[in-house]
Protein backbone atom coordinates (compact mmCIF):
# COMPACT_ATOMS: atom_id res chain seq x y z
CA UNK A 1 0.00 0.00 0.00
CA UNK A 2 1.39 3.36 -0.94
CA UNK A 3 1.00 5.91 1.78
CA UNK A 4 1.73 9.57 1.77
CA UNK A 5 2.63 10.08 -1.85
CA UNK A 6 3.52 13.70 -2.62
CA UNK A 7 1.87 15.33 -5.62
CA UNK A 8 2.51 18.78 -6.98
CA UNK A 9 -0.52 20.95 -7.72
CA UNK A 10 0.06 24.28 -9.47
CA UNK A 11 -2.36 27.19 -9.10
CA UNK A 12 -2.67 29.44 -12.14
CA UNK A 13 -4.99 32.38 -12.71
CA UNK A 14 -5.44 36.04 -13.55
CA UNK A 15 -4.56 38.65 -10.94
CA UNK A 16 -7.45 39.52 -8.61
CA UNK A 17 -9.20 36.19 -8.96
CA UNK A 18 -8.70 35.13 -5.36
CA UNK A 19 -6.04 32.61 -6.32
CA UNK A 20 -3.88 33.43 -3.33
CA UNK A 21 -6.94 33.37 -1.10
CA UNK A 22 -7.62 29.82 -2.26
CA UNK A 23 -3.98 28.94 -1.70
CA UNK A 24 -4.08 30.32 1.84
CA UNK A 25 -7.40 28.73 2.64
CA UNK A 26 -6.27 25.30 1.47
CA UNK A 27 -2.80 25.27 2.96
CA UNK A 28 -3.31 27.41 6.02
CA UNK A 29 0.05 28.88 5.14
CA UNK A 30 -0.17 32.49 6.08
CA UNK A 31 0.57 34.71 3.17
CA UNK A 32 -0.87 38.08 2.45
CA UNK A 33 -2.99 38.36 -0.68
CA UNK A 34 -3.00 41.57 -2.64
CA UNK A 35 -5.84 42.95 -4.65
CA UNK A 36 -3.79 43.81 -7.71
CA UNK A 37 -1.53 42.45 -10.35
CA UNK A 38 1.81 40.83 -9.91
CA UNK A 39 1.84 40.48 -6.17
CA UNK A 40 3.50 37.11 -5.79
CA UNK A 41 6.66 37.15 -7.79
CA UNK A 42 8.45 34.18 -6.35
CA UNK A 43 6.54 31.00 -5.84
CA UNK A 44 5.00 30.25 -2.50
CA UNK A 45 4.40 26.65 -1.54
CA UNK A 46 2.21 24.96 0.99
CA UNK A 47 0.89 21.49 1.72
CA UNK A 48 -2.53 19.89 2.04
CA UNK A 49 -3.12 16.38 3.28
CA UNK A 50 -5.98 14.48 1.75
CA UNK A 51 -6.71 10.75 1.83
CA UNK A 52 -3.19 9.62 2.69
CA UNK A 53 -1.70 11.83 0.02
CA UNK A 54 0.14 15.09 0.37
CA UNK A 55 -0.56 17.80 -2.17
CA UNK A 56 2.18 20.34 -2.51
CA UNK A 57 0.47 23.49 -3.77
CA UNK A 58 2.49 25.95 -5.81
CA UNK A 59 1.07 29.43 -6.12
CA UNK A 60 2.09 30.61 -9.60
CA UNK A 61 2.21 34.35 -10.28
CA UNK A 62 -1.13 35.87 -11.29
CA UNK A 63 -0.97 36.64 -15.01
CA UNK A 64 -3.32 37.66 -17.79
CA UNK A 65 -1.76 35.27 -20.26
CA UNK A 66 1.06 32.77 -20.62
CA UNK A 67 2.76 34.27 -23.64
CA UNK A 68 5.87 35.26 -21.69
CA UNK A 69 5.57 39.03 -22.03
CA UNK A 70 6.91 39.40 -18.52
CA UNK A 71 8.98 37.49 -16.02
CA UNK A 72 5.82 36.50 -14.17
CA UNK A 73 4.32 34.95 -17.26
CA UNK A 74 7.51 33.13 -18.09
CA UNK A 75 7.78 31.72 -14.57
CA UNK A 76 4.20 30.46 -14.69
CA UNK A 77 4.54 29.05 -18.18
CA UNK A 78 7.85 27.31 -17.48
CA UNK A 79 6.47 25.71 -14.38
CA UNK A 80 3.48 24.22 -16.14
CA UNK A 81 5.38 23.01 -19.20
CA UNK A 82 8.71 21.95 -17.78
CA UNK A 83 8.05 21.04 -14.16
CA UNK A 84 4.89 19.19 -15.18
CA UNK A 85 2.80 19.45 -12.02
CA UNK A 86 0.48 16.48 -11.49
CA UNK A 87 -2.50 18.80 -11.67
CA UNK A 88 -2.84 22.43 -12.69
CA UNK A 89 -5.72 24.25 -11.04
CA UNK A 90 -6.82 27.22 -13.08
CA UNK A 91 -8.62 29.71 -10.88
CA UNK A 92 -11.18 31.87 -12.70
CA UNK A 93 -13.11 34.91 -11.57
CA UNK A 94 -16.80 34.11 -12.05
CA UNK A 95 -17.59 37.80 -12.51
CA UNK A 96 -15.35 38.16 -15.55
CA UNK A 97 -15.30 34.67 -16.94
CA UNK A 98 -14.75 35.73 -20.52
CA UNK A 99 -11.31 37.20 -20.03
CA UNK A 100 -10.40 34.58 -17.46
CA UNK A 101 -11.25 31.72 -19.80
CA UNK A 102 -8.42 32.82 -22.09
CA UNK A 103 -5.92 31.71 -19.52
CA UNK A 104 -7.69 28.40 -18.98
CA UNK A 105 -7.66 27.76 -22.74
CA UNK A 106 -3.96 28.56 -22.86
CA UNK A 107 -3.20 26.18 -20.00
CA UNK A 108 -5.23 23.50 -21.72
CA UNK A 109 -2.98 23.80 -24.77
CA UNK A 110 -0.04 22.98 -22.50
CA UNK A 111 -1.31 20.12 -20.37
CA UNK A 112 -4.36 17.93 -20.09
CA UNK A 113 -4.28 17.56 -16.31
CA UNK A 114 -6.33 20.67 -15.72
CA UNK A 115 -9.06 21.41 -13.22
CA UNK A 116 -10.96 24.65 -13.60
CA UNK A 117 -12.09 26.39 -10.40
CA UNK A 118 -14.69 29.07 -10.90
CA UNK A 119 -14.08 31.26 -7.89
CA UNK A 120 -15.97 34.23 -6.41
CA UNK A 121 -19.19 32.38 -7.12
CA UNK A 122 -20.93 34.21 -4.24
CA UNK A 123 -19.98 37.56 -5.76
CA UNK A 124 -21.30 36.44 -9.14
CA UNK A 125 -24.59 35.31 -7.65
CA UNK A 126 -25.04 38.72 -6.05
CA UNK A 127 -24.54 40.36 -9.40
CA UNK A 128 -26.96 38.08 -11.17
CA UNK A 129 -24.41 36.06 -13.07
CA UNK A 130 -25.36 32.42 -13.51
CA UNK A 131 -22.81 29.93 -14.69
CA UNK A 132 -23.83 26.51 -15.93
CA UNK A 133 -20.83 24.53 -14.79
CA UNK A 134 -21.96 21.23 -16.27
CA UNK A 135 -22.25 22.79 -19.68
CA UNK A 136 -18.94 24.54 -19.17
CA UNK A 137 -17.37 21.23 -18.21
CA UNK A 138 -18.67 19.60 -21.40
CA UNK A 139 -17.44 22.52 -23.47
CA UNK A 140 -13.98 22.59 -21.96
CA UNK A 141 -13.52 18.85 -21.56
CA UNK A 142 -11.98 19.18 -18.12
CA UNK A 143 -13.53 19.17 -14.62
CA UNK A 144 -15.13 22.48 -13.63
CA UNK A 145 -15.93 23.29 -10.01
CA UNK A 146 -17.61 26.28 -8.46
CA UNK A 147 -15.97 27.51 -5.31
CA UNK A 148 -15.80 30.49 -3.04
CA UNK A 149 -12.33 30.67 -1.60
CA UNK A 150 -13.13 33.37 0.93
CA UNK A 151 -16.13 31.50 2.29
CA UNK A 152 -14.33 28.17 1.95
CA UNK A 153 -17.18 26.55 0.01
CA UNK A 154 -16.73 23.86 -2.60
CA UNK A 155 -13.47 22.58 -1.13
CA UNK A 156 -14.48 18.94 -0.49
CA UNK A 157 -15.53 18.46 -4.12
CA UNK A 158 -12.35 20.16 -5.29
CA UNK A 159 -10.07 17.97 -3.19
CA UNK A 160 -11.97 14.88 -4.30
CA UNK A 161 -11.59 15.85 -7.96
CA UNK A 162 -7.86 16.39 -7.49
CA UNK A 163 -7.63 12.99 -5.85
CA UNK A 164 -9.48 11.25 -8.64
CA UNK A 165 -7.47 13.00 -11.33
CA UNK A 166 -4.21 11.93 -9.69
CA UNK A 167 -5.40 8.35 -9.45
CA UNK A 168 -6.26 8.42 -13.13
CA UNK A 169 -10.00 8.06 -12.63
CA UNK A 170 -10.71 11.14 -14.67
CA UNK A 171 -9.86 11.30 -18.35
CA UNK A 172 -9.91 14.76 -19.78
CA UNK A 173 -10.19 15.87 -23.37
CA UNK A 174 -9.22 19.52 -23.22
CA UNK A 175 -10.82 21.82 -25.75
CA UNK A 176 -8.32 22.57 -28.49
CA UNK A 177 -8.71 25.93 -30.12
CA UNK A 178 -8.99 25.80 -33.90
CA UNK A 179 -7.07 28.62 -35.51
CA UNK A 180 -7.60 29.75 -39.07
CA UNK A 181 -6.51 27.48 -41.92
CA UNK A 182 -3.29 29.34 -42.54
CA UNK A 183 -2.11 28.99 -38.94
CA UNK A 184 -3.29 25.40 -38.69
CA UNK A 185 -1.36 24.63 -41.87
CA UNK A 186 1.81 26.10 -40.44
CA UNK A 187 1.32 24.23 -37.18
CA UNK A 188 1.03 20.89 -38.95
CA UNK A 189 4.16 21.70 -40.92
CA UNK A 190 6.12 22.29 -37.74
CA UNK A 191 4.73 19.64 -35.42
CA UNK A 192 6.56 16.62 -36.94
CA UNK A 193 9.88 18.41 -36.64
CA UNK A 194 9.16 19.44 -33.06
CA UNK A 195 8.20 15.86 -32.24
CA UNK A 196 11.43 14.58 -33.73
CA UNK A 197 13.36 16.75 -31.31
CA UNK A 198 11.46 16.60 -28.07
CA UNK A 199 9.45 13.43 -28.47
CA UNK A 200 6.47 13.25 -26.17
CA UNK A 201 8.18 15.01 -23.32
CA UNK A 202 6.66 18.38 -24.11
CA UNK A 203 3.40 19.39 -25.85
CA UNK A 204 4.44 19.65 -29.50
CA UNK A 205 1.41 21.50 -30.88
CA UNK A 206 1.81 24.15 -28.23
CA UNK A 207 5.55 24.47 -28.90
CA UNK A 208 4.91 24.82 -32.62
CA UNK A 209 2.40 27.58 -31.96
CA UNK A 210 4.78 29.45 -29.66
CA UNK A 211 7.56 29.20 -32.23
CA UNK A 212 5.27 30.62 -34.89
CA UNK A 213 4.55 33.49 -32.52
CA UNK A 214 8.26 34.29 -32.50
CA UNK A 215 9.00 32.98 -29.04
CA UNK A 216 12.61 32.02 -29.76
CA UNK A 217 13.72 31.90 -26.14
CA UNK A 218 11.48 28.87 -25.70
CA UNK A 219 13.76 26.66 -27.79
CA UNK A 220 16.80 27.60 -25.71
CA UNK A 221 14.84 26.76 -22.61
CA UNK A 222 13.81 23.38 -24.05
CA UNK A 223 17.38 22.59 -25.03
CA UNK A 224 18.59 23.50 -21.58
CA UNK A 225 15.92 21.41 -19.90
CA UNK A 226 16.60 18.37 -22.07
CA UNK A 227 20.28 18.45 -21.18
CA UNK A 228 19.54 18.74 -17.51
CA UNK A 229 17.23 15.79 -17.90
CA UNK A 230 19.98 13.72 -19.45
CA UNK A 231 22.51 14.55 -16.79
CA UNK A 232 20.33 13.56 -13.92
CA UNK A 233 16.74 12.74 -13.37
CA UNK A 234 16.42 16.13 -11.87
CA UNK A 235 13.52 17.29 -9.94
CA UNK A 236 14.52 20.80 -9.13
CA UNK A 237 11.73 23.14 -8.46
CA UNK A 238 12.21 26.87 -8.52
CA UNK A 239 10.92 26.99 -5.06
CA UNK A 240 11.18 29.49 -2.31
CA UNK A 241 9.41 27.40 0.23
CA UNK A 242 9.66 28.66 3.73
CA UNK A 243 10.76 32.08 2.57
CA UNK A 244 7.24 33.42 2.25
CA UNK A 245 7.78 35.62 5.25
CA UNK A 246 10.57 37.45 3.55
CA UNK A 247 8.56 37.86 0.42
CA UNK A 248 5.51 39.51 1.83
Amino acid sequence: MTTNEVYRIALAGNPNTGKSTLFNALTGLKQHTGNWAGKTVSLAEGSVHYKKSTYRLIDLPGTYSLYSNSTDEEVARNYIVFEKPHVTLVVLDATSLERNLNLALQVMEMTSNVIVCVNLIDEAKKRGIEIDELKLMRQLGVPVLKISARNKTGFPALLDTIDRMIRGEITTSPYAIQYNDEIEGKISELVPNVKKLVGDRFPSRWIALRLLDGDTSLLDEIQKRMHQEEESTWNTVQKTSGSHLENF
Binding site: L97, E98, R99, L101, N102, L105, Q106, G128, I129, E130, I131, D132, E133, K135, L136, Q139, L140, Y175, I177, Q178, Y179, N180, E182, I183, L209, D213
Partner: peptide, 21 residues
Protein backbone atom coordinates in the same frame (compact mmCIF):
# COMPACT_ATOMS: atom_id res chain seq x y z
CA UNK B 1 -4.92 36.10 -35.14
CA UNK B 2 -4.01 33.79 -32.27
CA UNK B 3 -5.31 36.15 -29.63
CA UNK B 4 -8.52 36.90 -31.48
CA UNK B 5 -9.21 33.18 -31.99
CA UNK B 6 -8.69 32.83 -28.27
CA UNK B 7 -11.14 35.63 -27.50
CA UNK B 8 -13.69 34.34 -29.97
CA UNK B 9 -13.52 30.91 -28.38
CA UNK B 10 -13.92 32.39 -24.90
CA UNK B 11 -16.84 34.47 -26.05
CA UNK B 12 -18.53 31.50 -27.66
CA UNK B 13 -18.11 29.32 -24.61
CA UNK B 14 -19.31 32.10 -22.31
CA UNK B 15 -22.36 32.85 -24.40
CA UNK B 16 -23.39 29.22 -23.99
CA UNK B 17 -22.67 28.86 -20.31
CA UNK B 18 -23.09 32.23 -18.60
CA UNK B 19 -26.40 33.98 -18.08
CA UNK B 20 -26.77 37.53 -16.83
CA UNK B 21 -30.01 37.98 -14.95
Amino acid sequence: EVVSSLYQTSQQICSRTVRFT
